[in-house]
């Protein structure tokens, strides 16, 4: 899992409540053998017509938001099916943080497993972030996990809460593999020793 400490990026405003995982990634894309590649179908039915044409009004189809890294959304983001394909699709598209007043529980946890930071903020703060996000490409929002703050493009900062252990794993990019990677020095040492003892390997 990629480390998450601080991110400054374009935020796409999605002032909708109850954005469910079916919207995020419709079921016909779950047959894939992959976990990535799903970004192409992120929000597929909101993003494309039946014959595959982009729907110009949809936020991620607008030039300003094509490279968004943050989503600011309404209440209860990620509800519905528990599919982990949802965070996979978001991540594959390039989304690393989602700001909302609340998240569905499973989705919230799935995000941490995949290096996406879900940030819960009070309604008035989300409204300010939403407004900032609507200013487009030049309004970059900063998410700082170390300090636990989000900052608007004009410098207004707000604190957010996050579980200490989840924060630790996220900041250090820890997962099963990540934990082994903490022993990288041991692996390096082993490899150096083995290279002398059994150079033919």
């Amino acid at each position: 899992m990629e480390k998450f400490t601080k991110l400054t990026g374009v935020a796409a405003p999605m002032p909708l409540v109850n954005i469910d995982t079916d919207m995020i990634i419709p079921k016909q894309f779950l047959k894939t053998i992959k976990r990535s590649g799903l970004g192409a179908n992120l929000f597929d039915e909101m993003r494309f017509t039946l014959d595959g044409q982009e729907i110009p009004d949809f936020v991620l189809n607008q030039p300003a938001y094509r490279r968004a890294e943050i989503i600011v959304a309404g209440d209860n983001f990620g509800c519905g099916s528990s599919r982990e394909h949802a965070p996979w699709a978001l991540l594959d598209f390039g989304i690393r943080a989602v700001i909302a007043t609340s998240f569905a529980d499973i989705f919230y946890n799935n995000c941490f497993k995949n290096g996406i930071l879900p940030i819960v903020l009070p309604e008035d703060v989300v409204a300010i972030m939403m407004e900032d996000a609507q200013r487009g490409e030049n309004a970059r929002i900063t998410v700082d996990l170390t300090d636990q703050t989000v900052t608007t493009s004009d410098g207004q900062s707000f604190p957010f809460e996050v579980d200490a252990f989840k924060k630790h794993c996220m900041m250090n990019g820890l997962d099963d593999i990540g934990l082994t990677m903490e022993k990288a020095a041991n692996i390096d040492t082993y490899e150096a020793k083995a290279a002398t003892a059994r150079p033919w390997v």
């Binding site: 899992m1 990629e2 992959k34 976990r35 990535s36 991540l91 594959d92 995949n114 290096g115 593999i177």
Partner: peptide, 8 residues
Amino acid sequence: EGLRMTGR
């Protein structure tokens, strides 16, 4: 895919 997603 796991490697790609994590940049490993």
